[in-house]
């Protein structure tokens, strides 16, 4: 009498546990993940044993890889692929961890099924389906973890890319690079205001040479920053508006009702003047004739 896939599989995995595990480990050992030195053999073995043990238990509850009996196994696999994503494994390595189990199980099925072709076929289909599902789950977790890492990096870049520099006593500069969205404006504003308090600044120069486009939204964000700085008692000067951007702004009808200067140097000169300072040349220019 022929059995269904789940029974065949459960029986095979229980009876032939040692042989399958051995073959799986051998195949894992050959894999690139061990060669690259990112993981030690002992650790790999422990992971494989845990996964296999949980797989055996899960199979008792049926073949549905999304079902309740597979929950602990999915959890363990998720954990493994998450840590691999962070350690920098390739997706192939990560997926191969589970796919390498296919062949040993096929082999074992052939041994135990003997001459019963229908048992063998049912078993193979069942294994294929289940392991594919588990492999996909591994990849999903892997990708999600990678995206998490990328998101965190993006956030760090946003924080790093908004430095507030002190040009002189009471004069701050904020060179902005990249597009201004509302999340970034928040960071910029907080940094600038805190720096105004810390440095007791009177004037802040916002340099937008590195901002590729200024549309109404960006202009609004700029104005918000300027208004907040004014509330703290500091004046703002916007500098570094490139010619094309100035044109676009005028065509769009964007108005920046703040002091604006073409270059950071001009803005700095204005700031010095406003704080009652002056830059003087100590010696007369040596050779250049001035007319």
């Amino acid at each position: 009498m022929s059995m269904d896939g789940a029974e065949v599989l459960s029986r095979t995995v229980t009876q032939d546990e040692a042989a399958i595990l051995e073959a799986w480990l051998a195949s894992l050992r050959e894999g690139a993940s061990l060669q690259s030195g990112r993981i030690r053999e002992a650790e790999l073995q422990t992971q494989a044993k845990t996964v296999f043990g949980q797989l055996r238990e899960a199979l008792e509850g049926g073949l549905d890889a999304d079902g309740g009996s597979f929950a602990p196994l999915r959890e363990t696999l998720g954990e493994i692929s998450r840590s691999r994503a962070i350690q920098g494994f390739t997706p192939t390595d990560t997926a191969n961890f589970i796919f390498a189990l296919k062949e040993p199980i096929f082999e074992s099925l052939r041994r135990t099924a003997g001459s019963d072709a229908s048992d063998l076929a049912a078993g193979i289909v069942a294994v294929g389906k289940m392991l594919d599902r588990l492999g996909l789950h591994t990849m999903e977790v892997f990708l999600a973890s990678r995206e998490e890492v990328i998101g965190r990096q993006g956030q760090e870049i946003a924080e790093l890319s908004t430095p507030v520099v002190r040009l002189w006593d009471g004069i701050l500069a904020l060179p902005l690079i990249g597009t201004l969205d509302s999340a970034r404006t928040g960071v910029v504003m907080e940094n600038l205001l805190q720096a105004i308090v810390d440095e007791e600044a009177e004037i802040a120069i916002i340099d937008i040479t590195g901002v590729p486009t200024v549309d109404t939204l960006v202009a609004q964000h700029l104005l918000k920053t300027v208004a907040a700085a004014r509330l703290m008692g500091a004046d703002c000067i916007v500098s570094g508006i490139r010619p094309q951007i100035a044109q676009t702004m005028v065509h769009l009808g964007v108005e920046l009702n703040v002091v604006s200067k073409a270059t950071l140097a001009d803005a700095f000169a204005v700031a010095l003047k406003q704080t009652g300072r002056k830059v003087v040349r100590q010696q007369a220019a040596p050779t250049v004739e001035r007319r």
Partner: peptide, 13 residues
Amino acid sequence: VVGMRPAVAITLV
């Protein structure tokens, strides 16, 4: 008005 905190300034804006 003097001594406004950064958080207060952001809120008002």
